[in-house]
Design a protein around this nucleic acid. Sequence first.
DNA 1: CGGCAGCTTATTGTATACAAATAGGCTAGG
DNA 2: CCTAGCCTATTTGTATACAATAAGCTGCCG
Lengths: 219, 219
Amino acid sequence: MSRASGHAYTVIRGMILSGELPTGSQVSEEALALRCGVSRTPVRDALRRLESDLLIRRSESQRSFVADWSDDDIEDAFELRSMLEAQAARRAATRIAPAQLEALRHHNRLIGAAIAGEKPDIPAFLDHNRDFHEIILTAAGSSRLASLLTRLIEQPVVWRTAQNYDRENLQRSHHEHEELLAAFARKDPAWAASIMAGHIRRAYYAYRDAYSAQRTAAE
Amino acid sequence: MSRASGHAYTVIRGMILSGELPTGSQVSEEALALRCGVSRTPVRDALRRLESDLLIRRSESQRSFVADWSDDDIEDAFELRSMLEAQAARRAATRIAPAQLEALRHHNRLIGAAIAGEKPDIPAFLDHNRDFHEIILTAAGSSRLASLLTRLIEQPVVWRTAQNYDRENLQRSHHEHEELLAAFARKDPAWAASIMAGHIRRAYYAYRDAYSAQRTAAE
DNA sequence: CGGCAGCTTATTGTATACAAATAGGCTAGG
DNA sequence: CCTAGCCTATTTGTATACAATAAGCTGCCG
């Protein structure tokens, strides 16, 4: 990722995720270029990528808007993610290398540490969680699957999920990772896939509960 | 899709699919720009889209190459397509509108007509087949699923598959569509999904047989 | 008072020039 | 003869200017 283009991508993505750019609002290439301190060219690049991430949608006249997510969209995204991550786990089960398995154990130990203290260290949890899933995706050895999944996992809803995790959810997540490790150790594709499907599905309900609680509180 | 950019996309894609650009060969933005009669700017655009279609891969130094497809890659693509199209069928089963169901029947009748004659009309078959699957994807009502699937269905391997269909395969394809119609008429998601999964899976083996026969003949 | 035509302005598309990076060859030294 | 390192030629990245297009507005006419 080249300097200006990558910078624009990071900045714009951050503005969307943080809510600085409200969902549904129009964004102009010019305005974003100024905000990022680069010219329109790399901004156009970044917008195209964000569009394929489904963070930006474009009108029929090619104008760019921050994507808005209905409840159905959110369920939909989790459903697809569940299916694809399960497939990744299925493939990884028979392909994973011993070193990768060890790396998974390592990251899950660090996840365990991050949620052990008085106050859970959410950023650390997120980091190691991302690494954990990324290793599985790599072990699956399918560039197509990787290409499809990365379009889903970088989305705001997914990103915000863990922010709403309570201690119980964090620990269950950690425990499900342990089960995945067991399935991988046995090289059992069906087992790995079903744990992963459930893992993502539970994340969906965790998000949903937190979100609806939030909405209720706001009213 | 704007004029120059869309034109570049179509031309380059055609050059890849027709084999004019050999798999693995490097392509330069400048050369393609000349070939398409546009400047590098829309070519860059087109290359980015082709990259996300996985028709182009980029080296770590950002140079562009025509993607090469191993046998594993091909199986992988069909496997994912099977999974996602089955999901589309599952969703469509309970959401499809009567008008859409009628449109599906219409296209499958035309498919039947295209393969009835002495010499099957493959282009017509492909057209109506694409429409058929597109209606299902629309009826599924998931923009994410649509976005993911269109990255898979436009790939050279998939495109070439029907070129290799013999009469029996064409008729079986037509018949499987009829079964799908029955599943949709009953609004049975599980039935629709399993037929679709098998439908794509069979297409994979049809391609595989034709391809290996081709390879054997070439030796 | 409502609607449409034409203009004005905002926004995106394209071309071109130049800057940066890098691949591949060439030379010099061992 | 092989290798290291530089150097050039190729290729991609970025900025900017201009062209095309679409949205919004204003004023005219029904």
